[in-house]
Amino acid sequence: MKISRRTFLGATGGSALGTAVSLFGPQKGRAHAAQTPPMKTVRTKQSTTICPYCGVGCGLIVSARDGKVVSIEGDPDHPINEGSLCSKGMALYQVAVNERRLRSVLYRAPGGSRWEEKTWEWAVPEIAKRIKRTRDATFRREEGGRTVNRTEGIACLGGAALDNEECYLYSKLARALGVAYLEHQARI
C-alpha cells in the first residue's frame, strides 16, 4: 500500500541546498492541544546528512536549534532509504549529543597512568616533531642500489570513517612522508 512519507524539507529550494528551516507547526485537527505539544522539530534549522555507519548510504535530516541538535531522522526524499533507518542510523542523535564524546586533546606520557588535557597549539607541533624524528631516523633513500625513498618506521591506519576529502589529504600526506605501512579498514 502507499503510505505517506511527507518530506520535512521543501520540495525545491531547501532540498537543493541541503539545508532549510522547518516551519511545520501543529496542523488542523488536533483534538487535545493541551496533551499534544507541537513537534520538537518545529522551527529548527534542518540540514541533510548521510549515515556514518554501514555502506548503504542512507539519508538523514538533522534538526538543530540554537546550535544544538534536536533530532535526527531518516530523510524521506532519499532514494535509498526513503525515510527509514535501522537501529544504528536512528541512534545518530546520540553521536551528536553524547557526554562521552572527546572534547579536548588528551596526552598520556610514556608510562603515565592518566590523561592530561592539552591544547591543539601544544599538540600539533609536538606530533610534528615526533613524525620528523622517526622519519629521519628510519628513512631509506636506497635499497640494493635502487631508489626507494620510504620509511618503514611510521605506520598510518584508518580512514573508512573519514570523508573523501579527508581520506584524500591523508593519502597525500602519508605518501609525502614516504610511509610504506599505510592500511585501513578495507583490508580487514
Partner: peptide, 23 residues
Amino acid sequence: ADRVAAGEEPACAKVCPTDAIVF
C-alpha cells in the same frame, strides 16, 4: 500523538525499512 497531529507518521512506522509497520 504530536507527530500524528502534525500530519506525520509515528516514529516507529516512519523508520521501518520493510514497511512492517505502516500507519
